[in-house]
Amino acid sequence: MTQRVSVRDVAEAAGVSIGSVSRVLNETGYASAALRARVLAAVEKLGYAPSFAAKHLRTGRSHTVGYLVSNIRNPLLAAHFSEVERHLQAAGYSVIVGNTLDQPHRDRELVSLFETRRLEGIIAAPSVESESPTDFLFGACGLPVVILDRETPKPMDAVMLDHRAGVRQSVDYLVSLGHRRIALFGPGEHIRPGREKLLGYQDGLQAAGIPFDPMLVFMSRSAVDSSRAQMSAMLALEKPPTAMIGLGTRLLSGAIYAARKAGLDIPRDLSVIGIGTPETLELMYPPLTTLRFNIEAAAQAAAQLMLDRLEGVVDEPARQVNVPLDLVLGESCAIRM
């Protein structure tokens, strides 16, 4: 087994004291340019890596943030995590991801783990929402918390997406093309995104004077569920949908699979509006009209809210950042003839 390189080894290789090495590596106290150059050259030569545990004990800080996600298999959430991590790493923080797999008991297990491991904050998109302060996941949490797109029983720093306005805009667009049988596939109403998307859908139908038909709606408990069976059932209705809005990568792909298996052409027979990452949407043909989730803006907002708390920049009540969703036109929607 290769022996771990120690601070003493670095000091001997640089011909300086252990204290001098410590000042350079921890950026504490004065160190001349020549001293820094000698120490850093020795670090590179020996391949020295500082001990995380030792640094934690010395400074009392872990410079690590926990990221709680309901299901990392969701490409949108994975992309969001990647952007949050990039912003926090640039500020000198590491990020540990905890994946609940849509299991509520895992939420509490991971929050407890983050606290016992002395992480400094938590950015969280829990799998469930709490209505009562007494059973609120973060009710007794002593760490700074930034909530992602969830409603909470007490005010907290949060980043919220304007799903309602985005889906309303999508319905308005399809109605303008002559569609009146519009299917909706989205996350369940047990979390804010699902409720807001359904409200936006209903807003659009009501404004157009179109009756709400629950047979055209599938709200899944998980955004990674497929929707093949549900879309097949909709297509078998006496009045099947002529357009659909798929607000989840698997929900979208499953519905399109069922439509194409039924022999439908997009957009001639079925107009489609979807959501997803640029990488997944590039696989779609024709180019998809999308309700764009601005991942960069949402990630930057979450990271900045957390950094403000960790660095003591703010000492004020909970703040909320609202991020809009934009409808980006492609070639997957057509006028209903």
Rank of each mutant, 00 (worst) to 15 (best):
V95W: 00
Q89V: 09
S62F: 06
Q89G: 15
K55E: 12
A91F: 04
V69D: 00
H87F: 12
V95H: 01
H87L: 08
I72C: 03
S62Y: 02
F81L: 14
N71Q: 09
I72M: 10
V95M: 12
Q89W: 04
L57V: 13
S62E: 00
E85C: 09
R61Y: 05
E85T: 13
F81Y: 15
R86P: 01
N71F: 06
A78P: 02
S82M: 08
V84P: 02
V84G: 07
L76A: 11
P75H: 06
A90P: 01
R86D: 07
T59V: 07
L77F: 15
H87S: 05
L68K: 00
R73Y: 07
V95I: 07
K55W: 05
E85K: 07
E83G: 05
R86F: 07
T64M: 14
G92M: 05
I72V: 15
G60T: 10
E85A: 15
A79M: 04
A79D: 13
H56E: 09
V84F: 03
S70H: 13
V84C: 08
V69I: 14
F81M: 11
Y67V: 14
L68E: 00
Y67H: 13
T64N: 15
Y67G: 04
T64R: 07
V84N: 04
N74M: 08
S82C: 09
N71A: 05
H56R: 14
V95Q: 02
R73G: 09
A90L: 08
V95G: 03
N74A: 12
G66S: 14
G92Y: 02
V95R: 00
